[in-house]
C-alpha cells in the first residue's frame, strides 16, 4: 500500500521554519516552526484533503511540498524522486508535473495578459508546442475543456467573473498535463452556485486526466464532497488522518469532532437535533504553542498527561490519530488482552 511506485507523493516528517520578524521587518528574532513533522502519502488518482483553521499550516505544507518554501527538515518524494531541497532550477522540469491552483483568481492572473497568453505562458516557459499559434490552439482547446468558449481567448482577467477566472487558472495549470494538482482553497472566493460548477469540473478533470489532488480547504462540506482521505491539521501537525467515510462517520479526535460540530448544516431540523459544543478560546499562535498536546487548552477531554506530552500520530484501527485518549484506550485493551491471556474467565 505504501509502495513508492503507487504513490505519487510521499512526505515524511516535513518541517518548515519561518524566521519571525518584528513589526519593522528586522529579522534575527527566534524562528517559528509552522509545520512540525507532517507525514502523508498520496496515491495515484487519489484525492487527499488537508483541513484545519487558519494558521494550522495547510498552505505552508503545500508550498514546502512544491519547494516554493524551503523545508527545514523531512523528505518529499514525488513520483519516486526525492526532491527535498531542490533549487528552482532543479525544480523547473518537475513543475510540469506538479501544479498549484490558488484561492484568489483575482491575484493569481496577470491583469495585463490576455486569457490566451495566460494559458499559453506555462507552455512557452517549458518549451511545449512548436509555435505561438500551436500554443494558442492548445489554449483554445483547454478553455473548452474547462467549460469556457474560445470567445474568451482575447479577453483580459478583469472582464471575467470569479468563477471564470478560476476556470482560467485551472486551464493554465492543466496546460502542462500535470500528474499532481495542489488546490489551495480553490473555491473559497466563489459563490455557492458557481462553487458547485467548479467542484464538478475538478471531479471531471480528475477522471479525464487521471490527476491526483492534494486539496486544501477550510470548508468541511467541500472536503467531504471531494476527498478519498482527509487529514485534519492543528497548529502545524496532523491530528487525525482517515478515509473520508471514517472521518465524517465517526470523528475520533476531539478537535475533529468539534470542528465538524461547528459547521452549520443547511437544515433547521437537523440543526435543532444536534447539540452544539462550543469550542472555547481561539487557535493559539504557532510562535507560542502550548506545551504538550497543542489542542489541550481548548480540549473538553483533556487529561493531565495532555499538558505534558505531545501525543504522536499513531495507528488506531484504519486511521491515524494523535491523541492521548486513544493511547489510553489502547493501553487498557492491552491490559484486558493480557488478563484474558492469563485465563481469567470473563
Amino acid at each position: 500500500m505504501n509502495d513508492v511506485a503507487t504513490n505519487i507523493l510521499d512526505v515524511s516528517d516535513l518541517c518548515v521554519d519561518y524566521a519571525s520578524t518584528t513589526s519593522f521587518g528586522v529579522t534575527g528574532a527566534p524562528t517559528v516552526r509552522a509545520v512540525k513533522g507532517i507525514s502523508l502519502t498520496l496515491q495515484r488518482g487519489e484525492t487527499l484533503s488537508l483541513v484545519g483553521e487558519s494558521g494550522c499550516g495547510k498552505s505552508t505544507t503545500a508550498m514546502a511540498i512544491l519547494q516554493l518554501t524551503p523545508p527545514s527538515g523531512g523528505r518529499v518524494v514525488f513520483d519516486g524522486r526525492d526532491i527535498t531541497g531542490f533549487s528552482h532550477r532543479q525544480m523547473r522540469p518537475l513543475r510540469r508535473e506538479m501544479q498549484i491552483i490558488y484561492q484568489d483568481p483575482f491575484g493569481s492572473l496577470n491583469p495585463r495578459m490576455t486569457i490566451a497568453d495566460l494559458i499559453a505562458e506555462p507552455m512557452a516557459i517549458q518549451g511545449v508546442g512548436r509555435s505561438g499559434n500551436e500554443r494558442r490552439a492548445k489554449a483554445a482547446e483547454l478553455l473548452d475543456t474547462v467549460g469556457m468558449g474560445t470567445r474568451f481567448l482575447d479577453r483580459y482577467p478583469h472582464q471575467l467573473s470569479g468563477g471564470q477566472r478560476q476556470r482560467v487558472a485551472i486551464a493554465r495549470a492543466l496546460s502542462l498535463r500535470p500528474k499532481l494538482l495542489i488546490c489551495d482553497e480553490p473555491v473559497s472566493a466563489l459563490d455557492v452556485s458557481v462553487q458547485a460548477q467548479v467542484l464538478n469540473l475538478f471531479s471531471d478533470l480528475k477522471e479525464q486526466f487521471g490527476l491526483s489532488y492534494l486539496f486544501i480547504s477550510h470548508d468541511l462540506g467541500v472536503v467531504r464532497h471531494m476527498s478519498d482521505r482527509v487529514a485534519v491539521m492543528y497548529l502545524g501537525r496532523i491530528v487525525e488522518i482517515a478515509t473520508r467515510d471514517d472521518l465524517y462517520g465517526e470523528p475520533l479526535h476531539p478537535y475533529t469532532r468539534i470542528l465538524l460540530d461547528a459547521v452549520a448544516v443547511p437544515d433547521p431540523q437537523i440543526e435543532r437535533a444536534r447539540d452544539h459544543v462550543l469550542l472555547q478560546g481561539e487557535v493559539p499562535s504557532v510562535a507560542t504553542p502550548p506545551p504538550g498536546c497543542p489542542f489541550h487548552p481548548r480540549c473538553p477531554s483533556a487529561m493531565p498527561v495532555c499538558s505534558r506530552e505531545i501525543p504522536p500520530l499513531r495507528l488506531h484501527g484504519n486511521r491515524q490519530i494523535a491523541c492521548h485518549l486513544y493511547d489510553e484506550a489502547a493501553a487498557n485493551k492491552t491490559i484486558e488482552a493480557a488478563m484474558d491471556g492469563n485465563g481469567n474467565p470473563n
Binding site: 455557492v192 468541511l220 462540506g221 467541500v222 467531504r224 464532497h225 465524517y248 465538524l260 448544516v265 443547511p266
Partner: peptide
Amino acid sequence: LASVPKIV
C-alpha cells in the same frame, strides 16, 4: 440548497 456540499 442543492449546490451546497454538506457534511451529512
